[in-house]
Write a protein that binds this DNA or RNA. Structure first.
Length: 154
DNA sequence: GCCAACGTTGGC
DNA sequence: GCCAACGTTGGC
């Protein structure tokens, strides 16, 4: 059973083009417990990822990826030079974990404003008022509809 | 740059 | 355990 996740990334930091070049990226920098718990407890190898561009001129779903590793400690939390350094997270008891994500496809941008016009998606967590969580589960029904809007096969 | 909404921290 | 203060997210 393949689950689907929406994962937000600021394209200035890591865009779908960056993922296409690298093919595979560690999802560094998550510092929210709910989002961490999704990666640590709920994600499985091969789960689908909707790659979302946030905090940019045109926010929206920019491509498809998949989970390609088990969860492991985010190395940036141990690096004092990293903006994601966490002094309260010792190596012997890491606080933050991540998964690696593999590129599948770049898609025409399915913008946030477009998503908001689709009544059947109005329950999507991304679209809820005040929702800021950087990783959210997407239901099968929502995924099928989004795939149709993106023009990709499920 | 603004600001609403949310999460975290820390004093009590 | 409560909750005010603060910091962050992220669309606009």
């Amino acid at each position: 059973m393949t689950a689907t996740w929406l994962m937000k990334s600021e394209p200035d930091e890591a865009s779908i083009d960056d993922l296409q070049r690298q093919q595979r990226l560690p999802w560094t920098g998550v510092r929210n417990y709910q989002a961490r718990n999704f990666m640590r407890d709920r994600m499985r190898l091969g789960d689908r990822v909707l790659f979302y561009h946030s905090s940019c001129a045109e926010p929206g779903i920019a491509g498809l990826a998949e989970v390609c590793s088990a969860p492991y400690p985010d190395p940036t939390q141990f690096d004092p030079a990293s903006p994601y350094f966490d002094v309260r997270s010792p190596r012997e008891k890491p606080r933050w974990v991540l998964v690696d994500v593999r590129f599948i496809a770049k898609t025409p941008l399915l913008s946030l404003s477009r998503l908001r016009t689709v009544t059947a998606l109005s329950e999507m967590q991304l679209l809820q008022r005040g929702s800021r969580l950087s990783i959210t589960p997407v239901s099968d029904e929502e995924w099928r509809l989004i795939a149709t809007l993106m023009g990709v096969a499920t």
